[in-house]
Write a protein that binds this DNA or RNA. Structure first.
Lengths: 346, 346
DNA sequence: GTGGAGAATGAACACGTTTTCATTTTTCGT
DNA sequence: ACGAAAAATGAAAACGTGTTCATTCTCCAC
């Protein structure tokens, strides 16, 4: 009753813009979806008035009719974990530049909740989903998503051998971790390391097993005895405790490979502040990821680097391509790793 | 042409559920919006069939008609910055539990882009907005948001004196930083500190000026000379460089107050690894925030703690209340700070 | 058994777009 | 200048839901 004409209340609608420009509402729509034909001067006029009225097409309405929400669901266990936060950060930037928005969801380590979370998330109609979560089969994800929503299970630390995925997604992002690990092992061995230990991540996670497997392979190729395994869970605290165990209860080591950089920080602090050992003189340490904190002077960590920016760009490229042409042929992209040498080896 | 009946393709609609349950589509709607009357057995039937068909109400359609998207826009400069990431993490969890989702946007330090970003974000119809961004007046924000969308400018490190906000938001979250700072200064003084320096954050930011002002006030009250100011920008690298400057070019100090914990890490590393000073013997250091990394052994930082969880809970409470009852009276909530003592003073 | 109150239910409309189709206007070749 | 092709434009339908209003049904008091 009060929303009759062009009242100031509420946001501007295409109808109001049309009215002020003496055109039909349809022309306004066309002015924003540039693919159809529209007289240039008329488009300019419409856009000017739209600007004036602070009008933008309502995305809810647009989503309703077009089936595209321009929302990308992102599932993360912990945003505040260093690695994930940097990935979410880069992802959000990239998506934002392409006209999409990041819809963020958190899952606790309680993986049993994931199905409920997925159903919940589905309600928001994301165009695609990127899951940083382990232990969730793509088929399980697919079961909860309708239409042909591409789902990208984004193993935090992917690597060979590839998991046998049979989900709706066939595009794949391969990260070859062999190069970086080979360089690292060669360097450690060059400096005289003989007994190399591995402080693991979450034990049965895809990320951890892939890395451990590759490390074992490379070490065997170079004639080294299999690594001693100290069990962690990707966290600082667990790595700290595991390292102490390794030396107090176990046989120690002269080099330690941590499953990720944060874990490596725990290893370093345990060695220096709890065990009284020197790095790299007594024990050498190598991490995984090359997060921003790794160059901080207190750690100054030698680590196997994943080019995060490049990786996120590739991921976004895959998603958008699949979204634009759902039936395009499957694409595989391959990224490299390499060793970044700092102060914890030598 | 192919989407005629209840094809498997596409997601289930209320109409399909209604058809299978021999009721009208409206009853299905009622079954989900529980406030209206509906025969219990019928509701049970509908919900069962909905479950069976994997149906949930389309949020785009629902948003279109109800005007509520259940999306909360969150603007952050950098997700991967420790403090922000922990806040976003807690925020997402809290919102998720209340049936909302976090819509994440990133702004670079290029503040001139913010208006464009806001217009962009507005297109997604967030029900409310939380901005971690400095230097954006609430009125500027309000100008871009229609309806009565409550906007919460979430100063990273708020404190007295309060900014004179005249925006649409009158609810307010006060963080009293005086208690924590008083405890910190008292302790430093107790251990003999006389010349206290302050390594700042971004200079003209609300966060930084508020903290500096309070520190200055408390120090004056206790008869200390005004703090030497070393200019940083909340980052590790800037604090690192500022500290070196402070000692190489300036007169040094016997205690350093950093504007945030990450900055304090830079201070510590500069002192120990570049200047060869011992902490806390030669110089004492205090930070701000108490982020998760502050207890790591290499830093083991004494710091002024904000109870992040409690704060986010309060914030979400305010938002939801305002959303539910837009005309409810203004509410002020007050939170405390306190000193967490670790190894960098004494 | 009848009237009426209250609950239960259904029909029509609204929300703000995009899209398809038909119609009108412009442009161009001859 | 005429016809046809192409471009520009508008009307109507659709997307899936919530809401208002009118209608039907149920149950109880008299």
């Amino acid at each position: 009753m009060s929303d009759a004409g062009g009242m100031g209340r509420g946001r501007a609608t295409a109808e109001m813009v049309a009215q002020r420009a003496n055109v039909s509402r349809i022309s306004v729509s066309r002015a924003f979806n540039s693919h159809t034909s529209l007289k240039p001067e008329k488009r300019a006029l419409i856009l000017r008035i739209a600007e004036e009225l602070n009008y933008t097409p309502d995305r809810a309405a647009r989503a309703l009719v077009s089936g595209r929400s321009h929302l990308i669901g992102v599932i993360v266990p912990d945003v505040c974990s260093h690695w994930e936060s940097q990935e979410v950060d880069a992802l959000t930037t990239a998506l934002q530049n392409e006209g999409f928005a990041t819809l963020l969801f958190k899952t606790r380590t309680d993986y049993s909740m994931d199905e409920k979370l997925l159903a919940y998330m589905r309600g928001f109609n994301p165009d695609s989903v990127i899951a940083f979560v382990e232990n969730v089969k793509p088929t399980t994800l697919a079961q909860f998503l309708d239409r042909a929503v591409p789902i990208y299970v984004h193993y935090p630390h992917p690597g060979e051998p590839e998991p046998a995925e049979t989900g709706p997604l066939h595009d794949r992002l391969n990260v070859l971790q062999r190069p970086g690990i080979e360089q690292a092992v060669a360097m450690l061995q060059g400096y005289g390391a003989k007994r190399i230990a591995y402080v693991s991540g979450v034990e049965r996670s895809q990320a951890n097993t892939a890395r451990e497997h590759m490390l074992r392979t490379v070490m065997a190729e170079r004639g080294l005895a299999p690594p001693t395994i100290a069990v962690g869970d990707f966290s600082y605290d667990a790595a700290y405790a595991a390292t102490i165990d390794l030396f107090r209860v176990g046989d120690g080591a002269d080099a330690i490979f941590a499953a990720n950089d944060v874990g490596a920080f725990g290893v370093l602090d345990a060695l220096r502040h709890e065990l009284g050992l020197r790095v790299p003189e007594d024990v050498q340490v190598v991490g995984f990821d090359d997060i921003a904190q790794s160059h901080w002077k207190s750690y100054n960590l030698t680590t196997v680097k994943f080019d995060l920016e490049e990786r996120v760009r590739a991921l976004v490229r895959l998603i958008l391509r699949r979204l634009k042409t759902p039936d395009a042929p499957t694409l595989h992209e391959t990224l490299q790793t390499r060793l970044v040498v700092r102060g914890t080896v030598g």
